[in-house]
Computed example of a mutant assay.
Amino acid sequence: MQKKILITGASGFIGSTVVDKALELGYETWAGVRTSSSREYLTDPRIRFIDLTYSDKEKLTEQLRLFARDNGRFDAIVHIAGMTKALHKADFDRVNDGYTRHLADALIETGTVPDSFIFMSSLSAIGKGDEENYAPLRAEQEPNPTTAYGRSKLKAENYLKSLPGFPYVILRPTGVYGPRDKDYYILVKSVKNGLNVGAGMKRQLLTFIYSEDLARVIFLCIEKQVKRVEYIVADGDVYTDEEFNRIVQEVLHKKRVLRLKIPLGVVKGAAWVSEKVASLLGRASTFNTDKYNIMEQRNWNCDIEPIRTGLSFKPEYPLRRGVEETVRWYKEKGWL
């Protein structure tokens, strides 16, 4: 019998990639999207759509009850929907923590808890690591997030852990890149235009995971039926910021790029100004003080031994291959 999967936040970069993978693997695929959301990457006729009201637990509970009556429960849920930038920092808690609580509670109240509930958290939920010896971040270490975004994700994680027997898997991916992504696109476009800007003078270690590999990790968790665990997700390699930028430059065949290193103090001031201007205009800014706290972190080195051994995960896209695929997609779509 075909298994049903719900993917929340399906219109986004990661969500739409997971939808593609679910279809490839033969799932009855339900895309959780708002009516107003773009469906640019959700055009496959096999996709089924559902608009769930996460902000109102009573309405959400009734929606899930009616869905189960007509269709049966979901076998797996991948909860990706969330907020990565906000006009007010309290909105991170309201959406990333609050909506997750509502969804979990509604599933319990309706008796429709799935076999697998994959929660897409973030490496930011752990916070800063060792910036002297650059020891890798580990899933079991005591979290100490430095951003409102990271704290909201950690609150949601802790709530899921508090629910007896709830079949959560918490994934904390490092920097996710790939086709459809707009964040790394800004950097790639800047390099193509001959400019490469870095924040801070101290050495920075970076880690990455290609979107297709992240989707594979999700389905390995579902298919291996792992429960009540948390994993850091990365491809296993570590790069300095200079090495990463050099790979982007080489893939773009850009011989000369002006490299600027901006002191963190200057970056912090610019982030504060950007946030204040955006607030006056009544909109959320991508470059803000919360983002600065991520940019100043020097050590994103990760221990991924648990997904290597527990899930038998081996990345198919090391960084250079992933960047090549991503740049190819940007060019095909006319972004570059």
Rank of each mutant, 00 (worst) to 15 (best):
V233E: 09
T35E: 10
F287W: 07
W300T: 02
E325L: 14
Y159G: 10
K202A: 15
E223A: 12
S36Y: 07
N96L: 02
F74T: 10
R256D: 03
K254C: 05
W300K: 02
G194L: 09
D105T: 07
M295E: 12
L206A: 02
T84Y: 04
I77D: 12
Y41V: 07
D241Y: 10
D181A: 08
E212M: 08
T8G: 04
L103M: 15
E212C: 03
R172S: 04
T147M: 08
V233T: 11
I218C: 08
L137I: 11
L160C: 05
S211H: 08
P114F: 13
G26Y: 03
E275T: 06
L42A: 12
V113W: 07
E305G: 04
R73L: 06
W329G: 00
K255H: 03
I222R: 11
T110M: 05
A68P: 06
V233L: 10
G265Q: 01
R48C: 09
K314V: 09
R151E: 14
S211P: 01
L6M: 08
G32H: 11
D91A: 15
E58K: 15
K4R: 15
T240M: 03
K182G: 00
I126F: 01
G32D: 09
P167C: 05
I7M: 11
D20R: 14
G269M: 12
L187F: 12
K21Y: 10
L42Q: 13
H253G: 07
S55H: 05
F49E: 06
C302V: 14
K254R: 15
V197Y: 05
N299T: 12
V266H: 01
K189I: 07
D237N: 13
E109W: 04
S55L: 00
G165M: 02
K89R: 05
Y54C: 01
G265V: 02
L154C: 09
N293E: 15
G32F: 12
A271S: 14
P306G: 03
K161F: 00
L52A: 07
K128H: 08
E324Q: 13
N144R: 14
E243T: 09
S116G: 05
A199N: 09
Q63K: 05
L25Y: 10
A234K: 02
W335E: 13
A284L: 07
A139R: 00
V33Y: 02
P318K: 04
G82N: 10
I186G: 01
D303L: 09
E140H: 08
I118M: 06
G282K: 03
F92Q: 13
L260R: 04
I218W: 06
I170G: 11
T8H: 05
R172Q: 08
F166T: 07
D56V: 11
T100K: 07
